[in-house]
């Protein structure tokens, strides 16, 4: 637990000293405005809440991909990876703490879009099922964190990780149905989407703002958690093998 808290505290201090990790929090309100303008233009007031929720999911994913995914690479380039590995705390624990801090910051986007929606368009998110909404957001943050660990382990092995991360954002927004539900995508894509935790998150989050009851809430929530746990375990496994390989090859530090 101390390692987790050390990583959590470290990341908050880093972000405080260098707030560039908060960049997605600047874009979230802008995306909210764009999406709200689109649904207004289309005369679809029923989608206004969806337009506000999509940027929250996008922000979480963006933070995971662009910041959490590069944590190990950053430490390696700053010659911090070797001393971290040489301490009694496992890198995965520290990493989880750091990513949890980033996810917590990413969730601030929820408050942002609420404010922007109210101030600019006079619309808000109907809290029809607030507890379910909170649980869905937490499960989504957990699943995103699990995926980020896998990214961090893979990216440290690649030379052009930034190109990869730049090109991975929008396909996930599409496959994850963050704004347009997966049901509207071509049929052959839908099976792929069902393996992406974000598609379950987006659908469930949208369901929590509808007045109707949420069908199969717990099983859908469990699916998000399960996919997140699978990502987390896969990330741990990749990290274990990547670190073993780097220790063997002498690649924990850059020259």
């Amino acid at each position: 637990m101390r390692g987790f808290l050390a990583g959590f505290g470290l990341e908050l201090r880093i972000v405080r000293a260098a707030p560039d990790a908060l960049m997605p929090l600047l874009t979230a309100p802008l995306f909210a405005l764009v999406f709200l303008a689109i649904v207004r233009q289309s005369g679809r007031a029923d989608l206004e809440a969806d337009a506000l929720l999509a940027p929250v999911l996008m922000t979480l994913w963006w933070v995971a991909l662009q910041h959490a995914g590069h944590l190990i690479t950053g430490d390696r380039w700053q010659a911090l990876l070797e001393p971290v590995i040489a301490t009694p705390t496992s890198l995965a624990t520290i990493l989880l703490g750091r990513i949890a801090a980033l996810m917590g910051l990413g969730l601030l986007s929820f408050g942002e879009v609420l404010i922007v929606g109210k101030l600019v368009f006079g619309v808000g998110v109907p809290f029809e099922h607030p507890v379910e909404m909170a649980l869905t957001l937490l499960a989504t943050a957990f699943a995103t964190a699990g995926t980020a660990i896998a990214f961090a382990a893979v990216f440290v092995m690649t030379r052009n990780a930034y190109t990869f991360t730049n090109s991975l954002s929008f396909p996930l927004y599409l496959l994850g149905g963050v704004f347009v539900p997966v049901a509207f995508l071509p049929g052959w894509i839908q099976p792929v989407s069902s393996g992406v935790f974000m598609s379950w998150s987006a659908d469930l989050l949208r369901a929590t703002v509808k007045r109707d009851g949420i069908g199969d809430f717990w099983s859908r929530l469990a699916m998000i958690v399960a996919l997140g746990a699978a990502s987390f375990l896969l990330g741990r496994l990749i990290l274990f093998h990547v670190l073993a390989r780097m220790r063997a090859k002498g690649e924990l530090a850059t020259v």
Binding site: I14, L80, I94
Partner: peptide, 29 residues
């Protein structure tokens, strides 16, 4: 063990000296 590698890297430059040490201390549980 404790290790000290030479050179300027190996520290979080944007944090203070105290914050750096507190972080590393926590990693030693």
């Amino acid at each position: 063990i404790g290790i000290v590698f030479g050179g300027e890297r190996g520290l979080y430059w944007r944090l203070t000296g105290r914050q750096n040490l507190e972080y590393w201390g926590a990693l030693y549980r």
